[in-house]
């Protein structure tokens, strides 16, 4: 008996060694790239691209194909932006637009999240309004502006209504498709470990749907920003303050092409900055944590 005991012990140790060897051979290797290399491969190409665009622009201006009031020099636009920054006017303008967009976006998240959950989980609702929500995404939110002006007049309510109508469907859609894409196996595992519907939603479905939800939020932000610009461009009134959209419209009214381009560049810059500084890192973290690092 003692003999077989030691025999099986030795066998078990051998097994442990083989198992450990297999683990070592089979474990995915993670390749870390140094930060400076990442910076080099990520930051340099876009900078080069921007410089190239500037060079082409400069060349076109120098060729004087179009008159100055149609295509100003890059330097003239830069001067315009410099003036805006110099007299501090830019901060007020940015504040008006950005705080509205952020507030509108956050409200959209608060509205869209429970609604999205509800629609995703109630089959009847899903069939009824699901296609509508997807369809709403392809409706340019500028189409809502006239309606909103008639409803709310030239007040901030108009602007927020347009922002919400633009971004809520995107966020709902992201959440719904995130929930649709939860692998059925995970739901089954949740059931097998004893989770009821609510616990399963909290511990399995919602975390599993997070990447889709984040993608929806990212798109929702883009839609908020676009809708806001559409609303600001059209709804001009002292009551509404001066945001980037109004700045753009004023520049057009004054026939200042460099002002127009400066405003467009600022609108672009804000959109890209929020995307790069807020959404990209969050999304990256979530995807990395799940081994989906192929993305970003």
């Amino acid at each position: 008996m003692a003999g077989t005991e030691t025999g099986s012990r030795a066998e078990a140790d051998g097994l442990a060694d083989v198992a450990a060897g297999l683990d070592a051979l089979d474990t995915p290797v993670e390749r870390g790239t140094p930060w400076w290399r990442r910076l080099l491969t990520r930051a340099v190409p876009p900078v080069v691209a921007v410089l190239a665009v500037l060079a082409v622009w400069q060349a076109l201006w120098a060729a004087a194909i179009w008159p100055e009031f149609k295509l100003p020099a890059p330097a003239a636009v830069g001067e315009h932006v410099g003036d805006l920054v110099g007299d501090g006017e830019i901060w007020g303008v940015l504040w008006v637009s950005v705080h509205r967009a952020v507030l509108g976006f956050l409200t959209a998240v608060i509205i869209a999240t429970p609604l999205g959950l509800l629609v995703a989980r109630v089959p009847l609702l899903r069939n009824a309004v699901g296609p509508l929500i997807t369809g709403l995404q392809s409706l340019p939110s500028v189409a809502w502006v006239p309606a909103a002006i008639l409803w709310f007049g030239l007040t901030p309510a108009t602007i927020y209504a347009v922002v919400l109508l633009g971004s809520v469907p995107s966020i709902m859609n992201g959440l719904m498709s995130g929930l649709d894409q939860v692998p059925p196996l995970l739901t089954r595992v949740g059931k097998a470990v004893g989770a009821g519907p609510l616990t399963s939603a909290r511990l399995v479905s919602l975390p599993a749907a997070l990447p889709g939800y984040l993608a929806g939020c990212k798109q929702g932000w883009a839609f908020s920003w676009r809708s806001l610009m559409a609303a600001e461009l059209i709804a001009n009134s002292p009551q509404l303050g001066v945001g980037l959209g109004q700045t753009l419209e004023q520049a057009r009214a004054m026939n200042s092409m460099s002002g127009v381009i400066a405003a467009i560049l600022l609108i672009l810059l804000v959109g890209i900055s929020i995307e790069l500084l807020v959404f990209r890192p969050v999304e990256r973290r979530v995807l990395r944590g799940r081994g989906l690092a192929g993305a970003v």
């Binding site: 196996l185 595992v189 470990v193 004893g194 989770a195 511990l203 975390p207 997070l210 944590g289 799940r290």
Partner: peptide, 29 residues
Amino acid sequence: GRPAVMFQEPGLMPWLSARRNVELPLRVA
């Protein structure tokens, strides 16, 4: 008591560490 169930695929929650995956049934309980 509650049976332990295993499927052909591991079905681990990709957002949880191995330990937190093992803790899942205990968290539910």
